[in-house]
Write a protein that binds this DNA or RNA. Sequence first.
DNA 1: TTGTATGCGTTATCAA
DNA 2: TTGATAACGCATACAA
Lengths: 361, 361
Amino acid sequence: MAATMQDVARLAGVSVKTVSNVVNGYPHIRPGTRDRVLAAIEELGYQLNLTARNLRTGRTGIIGLAVPELSLPYFAELADSVIDAAEECGLTVLIEQHGGRREREIEVLTGARRHLTDGLIYSPLGLGPGDEHLLDVGYPLVLLGERIFHGPVDHVTMANVDAAAAATRHLLALGRRRIAVVGVHPGEVVGSAALRLAGYRAALEEAGIAPDPALEGEAGLWHRATGAAAMARLLDDGAAPDAVFGMNDALALGAMHELQVRGLRVPEDVAVIGFDAIDEGRYSNPTLTTVDPGREVIAETAVRLLHERTSGAGAGEPQRVVAAYRIDVGGSTDPSRRTASPEPGETTTPVPDDVEVPSTR
Amino acid sequence: MAATMQDVARLAGVSVKTVSNVVNGYPHIRPGTRDRVLAAIEELGYQLNLTARNLRTGRTGIIGLAVPELSLPYFAELADSVIDAAEECGLTVLIEQHGGRREREIEVLTGARRHLTDGLIYSPLGLGPGDEHLLDVGYPLVLLGERIFHGPVDHVTMANVDAAAAATRHLLALGRRRIAVVGVHPGEVVGSAALRLAGYRAALEEAGIAPDPALEGEAGLWHRATGAAAMARLLDDGAAPDAVFGMNDALALGAMHELQVRGLRVPEDVAVIGFDAIDEGRYSNPTLTTVDPGREVIAETAVRLLHERTSGAGAGEPQRVVAAYRIDVGGSTDPSRRTASPEPGETTTPVPDDVEVPSTR
DNA sequence: TTGTATGCGTTATCAA
DNA sequence: TTGATAACGCATACAA
């Protein structure tokens, strides 16, 4: 069996408390004592039992990360960044997939696994107005990617409306007028889909173009496949767009694929822009113009906020952090950059979304 | 504070043992008693403290999954599948990234986090011959993707040599003769890179072609970027290939991108085949011909094996499972399928790699 | 069928 | 600076 503190204490001729002190770096220990303990630890190959410590301290050193799916490249890359950032703080990450299914999203918030984690970084898709109370959980929670809740939780978000408008303006600046959007969640009033749609429409109206429902393509989960399917429906319905805004890169790449299946040239016939700046878009053909929402900053900020809540400086006003974004121009909107890496544009100072959010009280 | 079993027992007028029995689904309980307990649980909002149970039982219900990085799409999709498979067994997954760095890979095996998990699904890159003893850990371990160790651990692997040879033969069958390979790890004698290289060379020799070192492109981590860089070096050095075998899809897509940057046509000038069958290759331009190694089967098998070891039927001979593979033909080798989804070929009965592996004793 | 009592390995409280 | 001892919340022999 594995050695315990008792064994170490016995071998070193000290009490368990002293071993504990050594293990935890308590400073006031006589050097000789410490050495004896360290030697005993070495000899026995002792390793601290984290479970026992967790039970005793009530903390686990594990944080949860709840995302729709890891097969969505944005969330895979986000998870990568979160794990690295957590490592820096000595934290471990437990990933949960909820698939964007509302009941799973709720389950994640209250499930038994929350006993295993000190806090949660939470990226829901299915929650909406009226769900604020669900976020009133008894543990530190950092909400990601949305701006929908007024609840007492930290937010790390991006300027969805503003960035989506900027993406649309980029297409308008190319002279495109029939700009489709892919990824719409009908009926949604908050969440990335609704906010990005709002930005898209705002930019169109700003340019004197009336949003056309025939150009708004629905897609539940933001996969390549759903992007391609939405694009196919738009084309079949005769929408005849000259540009497409994919609400994320996977959708955009799926849409681009479908355009190419139909023999349409990107960007000459139809320009395409995405959102997320995943690595994949740097190697697609053509390379993908996209909105870079600052994924790493978002991950690091979320971990930092959670870490602050879980360790010590617990209380305090809920924070809201809005990450800066920029547009990276690739070949899917600029024929001269067909195979060139997307060129970072200017970083835009974050402008928090100011869409009217329905209140529930 | 959160309610404990004590609280529930008091409210229900029973002992903690009874509450425990109810919670754990012990069958021999009088219905009336059970109802009272359930009511008390409901009223108090009681939730089992997993940490306490873990300490008591010595099991956590968590399994570890150690991969290079989640930003590598294959591992992101693998993690997705593993998490889903684990969910089926009531297990939670703790993901660790080791980045293919040897010292991190070793650390993962022995680190304190192993106290939090019942077992580990382990996908190393940096370990090799002479490291078998490192795998002699005191907990259930399932090794993934390799065939390199004779240690007493379960393996779930693929027929790397055979599949790589099949991929190369596919290119040969197109009439290609100067077939490059990308992803070589020089000096490696085991591991995916070495095995796939062996398969590649074997297929060439079988066709009467002498392997040419000038056509073997090195790439440490199998990213799109390293694939592109390796391709660039080969082209700069005048290798002038008419086909490329990417040891994984990310490499292949990176290489394909670099070819397109240079104005070479895929597949007309250079055909490209990858390995992994990630979703991305179904939407690339052209779509990517690839070896489908049966990722889901691998994930499910690994989880099942680990679950068997951790729960009950612990001991028994180390298992070796070799997943079946097949080749999916897309546009990167068949111009008539430029934008078509890769077409599944015949599934090949797994032939375990039979490369001579240096023994260390 | 249910209750009592003990211990899992640690940290924390107090005293020495 | 260190030691003895009591929790932390649960599962489980053993008793009833």
